[in-house]
Design a protein around this nucleic acid. Structure first.
Ligand SMILES: [Mn+2]
Ligand SMILES: [Mn+2]
Ligand SMILES: [Mn+2]
Ligand SMILES: [Mn+2]
Lengths: 223, 223
DNA sequence: ACATTTTTTTAGGTTAATCTAAAAATAAAT
DNA sequence: ATTTATTTTTAGATTAACCTAAAAAAATGT
């Protein structure tokens, strides 16, 4: 039962965090950035990086930062997969709101059973995206790549469909719900105010002003 | 988030085990019996009993054994509730077999979210029994008491409905499945062989011999 | 280039949960 | 009532995951 390759919850959380930090760019992630995200001290991170490095999950060079190894990347993706499938379950089947599911999924993602996650996926109808519009890796770790850009990169008059959030903090999700912006909505960028870079958008038959920060965190699929 | 009353998984497992050991009888449970069930050493159990006693969850007297306190009992029941609701989910919704769910539920029962378990219960239609015929405590810790006796206590010619197992080990559950004995089946005791106390029963239009040990682990509701 | 600041690692502790070995208490046997 | 056996507790280590403080390396500023 206790397989050699069994990782602790803590190890899994580190891998997931490193994955999130390194995705996109190709540079090594710094010890401090991990510490910040994990809400721990840099010295604790160093300890863990040494351990993960010994297990072949992370390529770590003293003072130079870390990247996930192939094995570490696979493991991280499998945790992200579980996280997003559980979030989908909580919203689709148990009727949770999209801003209530993250913390519960943080726990559920560590349940150990390949069969469980296979069956859960089938039960949900093999969804490709979670409630926040994040892609759900399939059983082989493949992730649907989707052409989406942040609203902040739109040109005036450009129209797109809101397909996902970048920031998925509870507070941002609550802000969107409160202002009736939901995944699937069509948005049109009307005007950018030069003074503060705020965005005037049109959606659901109304005009609406959002901050640049909000715009940056909305992913749209251009029409 | 980290409530004062938050218990570790290990503490929860100890409470659940003490609960199982003390249920029925009213005597203190011995340190050794806990150690055996938990697959640890007695010295580890002593350590934990001292901790749980300090937290007011267990009434523990050195060398004299332990009983759950009221608070400890409530907590144990809430873990049993979660365990059985998850087992029901796995069987009813994800189509697991009844002999596959226990180990997964051992993990799921530790997920911390009152709201989750409330919603899960509603989603399942507030079931009163889990896939093994064990009663599921309600949100107030109340347990449906059911009049059931083990087949071993039946008299010849007595008829009953199989409503649950005592032993719910994978191997016993697999034995029952293999021999096509399922919850809900009507059973009649035909004869007890004096030589080895084996039981001849009639069910599903056929006769069938089971050992005394099997008979002891079948709970029936007498007709 | 050298001094200062920032980042990262090491050294040395702490806590929870475990272990082994030894001591103490209780129970059983003579 | 002693002796013997069993059960339980204590003492002292170990491991994982954390911490603080100090040392070392790297980055930055002049
Ligand atoms: Mn999430
Ligand atoms: Mn998500
Ligand atoms: Mn079970
Ligand atoms: Mn059960």
């Amino acid at each position: 039962m206790k397989k050699e390759s069994m990782l602790s919850q803590t190890e899994e959380n580190y891998l997931k965090e490193i994955y999130a930090l390194q995705e996109g760019n190709q540079w090594a992630v710094s010890t401090n950035s991990i510490a910040e995200k994990m809400q721990t001290k840099a010295s604790s991170v160093t300890d863990m990086l040494q351990k993960l490095s010994n297990k072949g999950l992370v390529d770590y060079t003293k003072y130079r930062g870390s990247r996930l190894s192939g094995k570490g990347n696979d493991k991280a993706i499998s945790i992200v997969r579980k996280h997003r499938l559980w979030e989908t379950f909580l919203v689709e089947k148990l009727n949770f709101l999209w801003d209530e599911v993250h913390d519960i999924a943080e726990q559920l993602e560590h349940i150990k059973s390949e069969k469980l996650i296979k069956k859960l996926e089938a039960y949900l109808g093999s969804p490709k995206f979670d409630p926040h519009g994040h892609p759900i890796p399939n059983g082989n770790g493949e992730i649907t790549k989707v052409n989406r850009v942040s609203l902040a990169e739109f040109r005036i008059e450009e129209v797109g469909i809101f397909v996902g959030v970048k920031d998925s903090s509870d507070s941002f999700l609550k802000y969107l719900s409160k202002n009736k912006i939901a995944i699937g909505d069509t948005l049109k960028l009307l005007y950018i105010e030069p003074f503060d870079n705020s965005f005037l958008i049109y959606t659901n038959s109304r005009q609406f002003v959002i901050s640049e920060n909000v715009a940056k965190n909305l992913y749209l699929k251009s029409e």
